[in-house]
């Protein structure tokens, strides 16, 4: 049972990251290489906000992470991404690489590269057969992830803004001509993506630890998105599950050192068999 619990929680962490990557890709054909950094910095903000409030209420750190996501999302889109439409594809990618490295330096400067574990009620809640335990944190992770994906589904399927979002992703010009403020919608995409990343960072920080090395979860999330297909939210979940399984099994059965290379080995395999991912569309290969 232990392994099932670990895999489920790892899947949640990666699925949230992959979902953010997919949303950003669909919205503006940008692949965000700074997603892991955003997640970990989100986790750090959550931790610090909790520390500042004295660790009594959960609302304060949550508000901190939300405010961080909104400010980062608006800033990244309005100050950088908005100005890069029409430039060669590599420009946007390299800007996200730059953002990632700036965030990494923020961890070094602001948090002095401290290795932190977010401690929100890790007391074992449920004991299962075989001595495995699930903490409240673990249960909260799963519930929050499921809620996030359900919310995302309902948002895209049934709300007017969600429909406008999908339209903007397909054809920003036409959306604008139909009265949709494209800048608002695309900023919103960044905010949602960073919010998901922050949540994932908090989950990861609760389960393992936050540090400059843990930004590699971004690469696992990116791999999950690619394995599932860059333009498919369903694929993000499937990809996250595959990456989580592969990583867990390698650590357990082969060699823990290899765990960082696992996502990429997986990626190479998927790329050589089905490069557009499990649920992706083939045409997307030529778009970026």
């Amino acid at each position: 049972m232990e392994f099932a619990a670990t895999i489920v929680i790892l899947t949640c962490t990666y699925a949230l990251l992959a979902a953010g990557t997919v949303i950003l890709y669909k919205a503006g054909r940008v692949v965000n290489f700074a997603h892991g950094e955003l997640a970990i910095v989100g986790g750090y903000v959550f931790y610090s906000a909790g520390l500042m409030s004295g660790g009594t209420s959960l609302w304060f750190p949550v508000a901190g992470a939300v405010v961080f996501s909104i400010i980062m999302g608006m800033f990244i889109y309005m100050a950088m991404m908005r100005r890069l439409v029409g430039e060669p594809f590599y420009v946007a990618i390299l800007v996200t690489v730059g953002i990632g490295i700036v965030l990494k330096s923020a961890i070094l400067v602001i948090w002095r590269a401290e290795r932190l574990t977010i401690d929100v009620g890790v007391t074992p809640a449920i004991r299962m057969a075989g001595g495995a335990t699930l903490s409240y944190m673990d249960i909260a992770s799963v519930v929050l992830t499921v809620a996030f994906f359900a919310g995302l589904y309902l948002f895209f399927r049934f709300t007017r803004l969600g429909v406008q979002f999908r339209g903007t992703a397909e054809n920003a010009l036409l959306a604008s001509q139909r009265g949709v403020d494209v800048n608002f919608v695309l900023s919103l995409a960044w905010v949602i993506a960073i919010l998901a990343a922050s949540l994932s960072g908090v989950l990861y920080g609760g389960r393992a630890f936050l540090s400059t090395e843990s930004v590699t979860i971004g690469l696992a999330g990116l791999t999950a998105a690619l394995v599932g297909g860059l333009d498919s939210l369903r694929g993000a979940v499937a990809g996250a599950f595959i990456v989580a399984c592969a990583q867990y099994l390698t650590v357990r059965l082969v060699d823990p050192v290899l765990s960082e290379a696992v996502p990429f080995l997986l990626l190479v395999i998927v790329m050589s068999i089905r490069p557009w991912g499990l649920f992706g569309t083939q045409e997307e290969l030529d778009r970026v």
Partner: peptide, 21 residues
């Protein structure tokens, strides 16, 4: 517009709803 005048990935209903004010 001349081309790309509807959102091909949305249903007809969603297209209409997209615009409705």
């Amino acid at each position: 517009p001349e081309r790309d005048k509807v959102f091909g990935t949305l249903s007809v209903e969603d297209n209409l709803e997209f615009a409705a004010r």
